[in-house]
Write a protein that binds this DNA or RNA. Sequence first.
DNA 1: TTTGTATTTCGTAAAAATACGAAATATAAA
DNA 2: TTTATATTTCGTATTTTTACGAAATACAAA
Lengths: 105, 105
Amino acid sequence: MKTDKQELEFVEMARFAKAMSHPIRLQILSLLSKSDCCYTGDITDELPIARSTLSQHFKELKAAGLIQGEYNPPKIKYCLQPDNWEKAKKQFDNFFESNKKSSCC
Amino acid sequence: MKTDKQELEFVEMARFAKAMSHPIRLQILSLLSKSDCCYTGDITDELPIARSTLSQHFKELKAAGLIQGEYNPPKIKYCLQPDNWEKAKKQFDNFFESNKKSSCC
DNA sequence: TTTGTATTTCGTAAAAATACGAAATATAAA
DNA sequence: TTTATATTTCGTATTTTTACGAAATACAAA
């Protein structure tokens, strides 16, 4: 069914939205992009939050597929995950586009 | 400071993202738009969920400012909230736009 | 006035998110 | 080998989210 397909799409999009539903995580994503899409510095210099908490946020962004990390202890290099990033962008674009503000209200 | 301004923007955007972080709520938003941005029918016909649960989802969408409802008991007419809808659209657009996939990864 | 309809609020329970500090991990540098 | 560095994992506590059924609400129609 077509409906089921869209329902699955919504499930996936909701997962991206949830990953973006915390200010810290939006800041992380923004930081990653600003440093040419990757970041290696000490990110707690930029964010007022415990390291372990930050690590949890990274974990969630990774679980949602929005970022990826190369681990070379004691450093890690975090990057946006280009494919899913593009996918999320398209889903949101499309969602807002096909749900335009109309004149009915 | 400029940073604080952006932080506030992220707080607001995170609120929109959270409102959109559940498949049912995405379906609701989608339904509203498809029925010319408003909906008056029995929405539980379309969604496999208890009425009270649905009502909670409506409440959250309302709290986030994405929808509005005219209450004429026993019916309610739900509509997208055009201004905030537009605002959310722009925030997401802008966020993905300024965080483009680059060639670094 | 009673009945029907569509919705919300209430009470409750279970699961998930958020945050922290302490300890563990893995490598580089001294 | 010891020390320093950046990060994760663990244990824990608090708050928030999600879901349901039962009861309440508010009006229209019979």
